[in-house]
Amino acid sequence: MSTTWFITGTSTGFGRLLTEALLARGDRVAATLRRPEALDDLRAEHGDRLWVASLDVTDREQVHRVVTSAFDDLGRIDVVVNNAGYGVFASVEEASDEQIRQVVDTNLLGSIDVIRAALPRLRAQGDGRILQVSTAGGQTTYPNFSYYHASKWGVEGFCQTLAAEVAPFGIAVTIVEPGATPTSFGSSLATAPTMPEYEHTPAGDVRRALASGAFPLPSDPARIVGAMIDLVDGDATPLRLPLGPDTYADVRAALVARLAEHDAHRDVALSVASDEHLAASA
């Protein structure tokens, strides 16, 4: 039995690869993107198993209209994949106000709006999956990606709360965390004029590594897409799915360091307890 998917950001990268893989195996896909003509070749090959709509996830009214139309036209949607993303590669001081707004509107608010639009229909179905594409940078950080991290840490907190709220309705939420991968995302990062003050800082080091090609891209994008499909086909519904050797290593190191710092302040944390709490705990 085929599965029906709703995917944002399908023109390139993971979105395009996922759409191709799903259609090749006989699934139905509601593919959304800013330029629908980018999928004309797939529409010609797969006919009505590919539903295509123009969508800018920063347009809230359009999000609700397109999500509603997809459910109405296809009858049901089994999996909603929030994949559309925007990245800014610049230090905190260098990014423009417009770039900051765009990354938050796309990655955080856009993802929230897609989910909010889909939830009433998923609840009515009594089941469904939501895959939120995040990144290793949803739990750890790298210089020059502060605003990207702000959006991804935000959407991960949102999805962790969401997962607890919608589990009683048979809806499972998984945050997918790919690491650095050779897709078009890296080449499409927005940049800003650099400040010489940051040349000999960690921000400058990362810039030089990217420019020289020394920044590792250890994961296979097709295998990442395959892991996402396998997840939906299987019974497991993890809150987070780390994908890539860098994701596993970097996120684990970040969590270990955070836990160590957390534990180091145990005595201070407990020292501010109220007298009422201390009396109740005695």
Rank of each mutant, 00 (worst) to 15 (best):
P168M: 06
R223I: 00
A280F: 06
D220A: 06
G179P: 03
A279R: 11
Q132R: 08
D127R: 15
R16H: 07
S69Q: 14
I115L: 07
A164E: 08
G87D: 09
A236E: 15
P143W: 05
L23K: 00
E156Q: 12
T237V: 11
E156R: 04
S69I: 00
A282W: 11
R34I: 09
A95F: 11
S91L: 11
S274T: 15
S271G: 12
A249N: 14
S281W: 11
S111E: 05
D267F: 07
L270T: 11
L33Q: 05
N107Y: 01
P242S: 08
S11V: 04
S96V: 09
L22E: 00
V272W: 05
V92G: 12
F169E: 10
A190P: 00
R121T: 05
H149V: 01
S54H: 02
S281R: 13
V232C: 07
I7F: 06
G179E: 09
T183W: 10
A44R: 06
A163D: 11
R76S: 15
A203P: 06
L22A: 03
L122N: 04
V206C: 03
Q102T: 14
G179F: 04
V66L: 11
L162K: 03
P36W: 13
G244A: 01
A164I: 05
K152C: 09
D41W: 07
E261A: 14
G157Q: 05
E45Y: 04
Q132E: 01
R76L: 14
A214K: 13
R65F: 08
A264I: 04
T32E: 09
Q62A: 12
E156P: 06
G170R: 02
R240F: 11
N107I: 02
Y198C: 10
I112W: 00
A70G: 10
A280L: 10
A257L: 10
G213Q: 03
N82P: 07
T106P: 03
